[in-house]
Design a protein around this nucleic acid. Structure first.
Lengths: 232, 232
DNA sequence: TGAATAGTGTCTGTTAGACACTATACT
DNA sequence: AGTATAGTGTCTAACAGACACTATTCA
């Protein structure tokens, strides 16, 4: 076999797991362990770790494993953001990490397991300086999420089904960081066939609202023909 | 140091290098070596190979090195597509590859070095069954390229500067695989400030055309507020 | 003057956004 | 009845697409 005779980089997977908490976008962080030799002890970091070639069938399976270990959830929305690799990001050596982002419905993982905690997002930061280059990885994941909100149905995965259109709109507004027009939002979402009515309604102190679910069985994103608002 | 005691995956970088040849979108392929032990001998493949942690500062530098080795070019457009990793894609073991795509101006690398050859794209294929999972990697790179043509200035990197608007439009049409309206194209490109006039003209047997160059010095993409055509 | 390509003016269809309006529940 | 939220009708602005028109060069 013709294998390279130089050393191999370390290979890791990191996952930015987003959800809504108390009306804010939040990301799940874990504390770095304090064992001797572990880099960045006690610092907050994105959940992640080494690819285990004995357990992980592929990179996505590895990301799903990290997700399951931290949230107990199996299959929310998961998408690859990209990969980062250089000699300096990990003091243990030349390493490359494959970054995913996941969306978890509000309340679904209310009590994360172990050392994990939800941290609200302010701008592109969490208020902590994360371990490794995870500040940059988180920012890249946020950039991707916010860019796709403009023309896809992504925030729907942050809302537990069934949901009212008002709840869905609120999720869009939280991720976008700005208000959107109610009539335009409803027209857009309904005419794209993104959601379908369940036939049921949610009562309350005021007029009850129609309950919807995502229309696609296959968990595919809906792409809108135009972005939510003209840029610039 | 707390390094994992299980074996590390192989780490590679592959680059889908696109250009225009004879009015077609083309990708640069190399032949796999025939040395004993080398997988997929003589098969066509995307240029790529192992990350060399002694030479490559980071993943992008590795991609640029592959690009330079095959085309002699230094800095065209380069963008990461994503990463693919599993136990089966390389017979030598669990491997992950970081995939980039590059755009090279037509004619700039007319005579690729060594065993490299330009192959026209038909749909999502080259007419060959590529080595490893490179058919899938190439398709992913094409999907990314074609998606971004709808709302960015990407095809401009396929045309040598200075260019006429007709030449630029032809590059868009080749990548899109369909004709676009001349007036709409010109309005779009000019009002976005994507190109700037050089003040010079290109003569010929008919009315001479204004020559343009990309307006941004920093090689940044122009994003249009709406896609070129409504989808669906 | 004719041919060929460069470049523009104008109309239309579509849709996001604004905003006011109606509808329906509970108290 | 009053209040709060759900949901809609209508107008406007912006822009892509279509298409015909003018402009400029060479032979």
């Amino acid at each position: 076999m013709d294998l390279p005779d130089f050393p191999r980089p370390l290979t890791t997977v990191d996952v930015a797991i987003f959800s809504l908490r108390a009306g804010r976008l939040a990301v799940l962080l874990v504390r770095r362990p304090t064992d001797p030799g572990e880099p960045f002890p006690k610092r907050w970091a994105l959940p992640g770790g080494f690819v285990d070639i004995g357990r992980d069938r592929d990179l996505e399976a590895c990301a799903l494993r990290k997700l399951r270990e931290k949230t107990g959830l199996a299959a929310p929305y998961l998408e690859q953001v990209g990969s980062w690799g250089n000699a300096r990001r990990d003091p243990r050596g030349w390493s490359s990490t494959h970054v995913y982002f996941a969306l978890v419905p509000e309340g679904a993982a209310a009590t994360p397991e172990g050392e994990a905690e939800w941290h609200p997002i302010e701008g592109s930061r969490t208020g902590h300086r994360l371990a490794f280059d995870h500040d940059a990885l988180l920012e890249a994941a946020l950039d991707r999420l916010r860019a796709k909100v403009e023309y896809t149905s992504l925030p729907a995965y942050l809302v537990p089904e069934p949901f009212t259109l008002a709840e869905l709109q609120r999720a869009f507004e939280i991720v976008l960081g700005r208000a959107v027009n109610k009539a335009a939002f409803r027209t857009r979402v309904l005419s794209a066939g993104m959601v379908e009515s369940t036939g049921k309604q949610r009562g309350g102190p005021t007029r009850p609202a129609e309950l919807y679910r995502l229309a696609q069985r296959n968990r595919e994103l809906t792409y809108f023909p135009r972005p939510l608002s003209p840029r610039g």
